[in-house]
Structures are given as C-alpha cells and as structure tokens.
C-alpha cells in the first residue's frame, strides 16, 4: 500500500503530537492519573477510537509495526479501517501477529500472548472516569482522586455482592494503579484484568471525546478492587475453543446457524490461528 500525499506523517501535525506526547509523559509519571489533553477532530466519529488513534499517531515511528484489534479480532471493520488509516498516512508496516507488533492499538481486549518490554499497548477508552456512575460532578471526582477517597467505589461492589452474591462487573472492572489511583481499564473483560498487573509493556489509554490520557508504566502494580472475603475472580465461559481447543483463553459465543447453533471461539483471532498453525484442533474444526 502506498502512502498518500498531502498529510503529515501519521496524519496529526507535529505541534499536536508534541502536546499529546507531553500528556503521555505526565501520564507515565503519575500512573493511573487522568491527564487532560486537547483532543483533535479526527476523520472518524467519537466512539470509534479517536483517543487511541491520536495516541498511536503521536508515538508511531517509521520503523514501527502496527497491529490493531477490536474485541480481540484483527478482521473487524474498526480494526481494519484504523490499520489501513496508518498504513496510508504513515506508511508503517502492519501485522496481525501479536509477537511481531511494536505498537498494538486495542479496543476491549488485551492479547492472550504475553507482551514484552519492546511493545506498547494503546487502549481506546470511551469513559476514563471510574467514578462517573457514582458521582456526576467532575469537580468532585477530581477531588476524590486527589484525596484517594474511594469508599464510594467499594459501596458499589458491596451492593453487587448484596444483590447478586458476587461483584457483577464483567468489563471495565475498576483497578487501583500503583496503590494510589483508581482507574477504569477501559471496557476490557474482567478476565483481562490480571494481565494489567506487572505487564512488561507500556500501556497507554486515550479517551478522545472525554479528552483524557492516562497510562500504566511497565511493571506497575495493578490490583482489581475486591473484598477480603469476596476476592476478585476473572471469569470466562466454561468451554474450550471450538476451533483451536484452547481452554484458558477468553471466548466469544458465536451463533452459527438459523437453528440457534452456537460455537465458542477464541476472541483473540491471532492467538487462535497461531495455535491452529501449531496443530491444535478444537471440536468444531
């Protein structure tokens, strides 16, 4: 694919990139703390990853290899469009292979394969404020963060256990970063939460509409909120992948025919393919 002319490298102008990089540096310096930034209009609507794209544009170098996933899949519309966008505007190499990528932009998943120190994970974030449902005032949530007053968040977990016998948050499960800031990990499944902890890769979070950037530096403690007598548990569907037979990966449930037939498959398409290439076979394959 050839680069289109008339645009700066990676679409954004250098001043904007500089502003975003400054926000990123600050975010890395204060793990889990939300940094405001001057989010730009991007050539796609809010909710389609404008925050993630701006971060990717600001950190992308000519030698980077980019992977983009949506719900774990490389082949969905959103992932394909963003990958092609950067191929066109930056001319960088793209890949679907987790281990070959240097920058991975993601919506709603963390890849199954462990990431390394040489990789950066960029999250698309719709709502950066974990306290938003408890406290509508932004001034007040900022104060709560400043003073680390997070009792209200535990009240929500308390209510869940009281009503459902367990914490009923299955995605965007709140975490404490570096024992200081309460953070929304973006709508990744709670299953992925343990991967946030002590990850070798740098994790960057961008919310375009809400104009916030935050980060988890490599090897940072990230703890999912819980109670001593109701410890955090990462749930997954109790099945094996129908295609590759994996029984530890996060699964999507797919309706396969008009008779209501169902199939559980790995949500991480690259992980599934890599396993199948290595000879693993599931029941439906």
């Amino acid at each position: 694919m050839t680069t289109i002319s008339g645009y700066n490298f990676a679409y954004l102008d250098e001043q904007t990139k500089r502003m975003i990089r400054r926000a990123l540096l600050k975010a890395v310096a204060i793990p889990g703390h939300q940094i405001p930034f001057g989010s730009r209009e991007m050539p796609l609507p809010y909710g389609w990853g404008t925050g993630g794209i701006q971060i990717t544009a600001a950190i992308l170098g000519a030698d980077d290899v980019l992977k983009v996933i949506d719900q774990g899949a490389d082949d969905t519309t959103n992932a394909v469009s963003i990958r092609r966008f950067f191929a066109k505007t930056a001319g960088v190499a793209t890949t679907t292979r987790t281990d070959a990528a240097t920058v991975i932009q993601t919506r709603h998943r963390i890849p199954e394969a462990p990431l390394t120190e040489n990789q950066i994970l960029v999250y698309q974030v719709p709502q950066p404020e974990p306290l938003v449902k408890l406290e509508p005032s932004r001034a007040e949530t900022r104060r709560m963060h400043a003073l680390a007053e997070y009792g209200a968040m535990h009240v929500r977990l308390y209510e869940d256990i009281t009503r459902y016998g367990q914490v009923a948050i299955s995605y965007d499960y709140p975490v404490m970063v570096n024992d200081r800031y309460l953070m929304a990990p973006s709508p990744i499944p709670a299953f992925d939460n343990p991967k946030l902890h002590q990850m070798p890769a740098l994790q960057l979070f961008g919310a375009g509409r809400e104009k916030r950037i935050y980060a988890i530096p490599p090897y940072t403690n990230v703890r999912s909120l819980d109670f001593e007598d109701h410890p955090f548990r990462a749930g997954r569907a109790p099945h094996a992948c129908g295609l590759c037979g994996a029984d530890t990966s996060y699964l999507d449930e797919v309706v396969v025919d008009n008779a209501g037939g169902r199939l559980f498959v790995c949500s991480d398409t690259d992980y599934c393919e890599t396993r199948r290439d290595a000879g693993h076979v599931g029941e439906a394959a």
Partner: peptide, 24 residues
C-alpha cells in the same frame, strides 16, 4: 440508590475496611 446496609457501611469502607461480612 444504595441499600441501607451500603449506606451504613460506606464510612467503614472509606476507612479501608475490606471485609464484606464484617461490614455487613
């Protein structure tokens, strides 16, 4: 919008108590 128990327990949780059974 929070149960009576959650309302009473909030100050305990704000003080760092993290045992559901004991809070309740």
């Amino acid at each position: 919008g929070v149960s009576a128990g959650g309302n009473v327990g909030e100050r305990l949780m704000a003080q760092g108590l993290r045992h559901y059974g004991s809070i309740r």
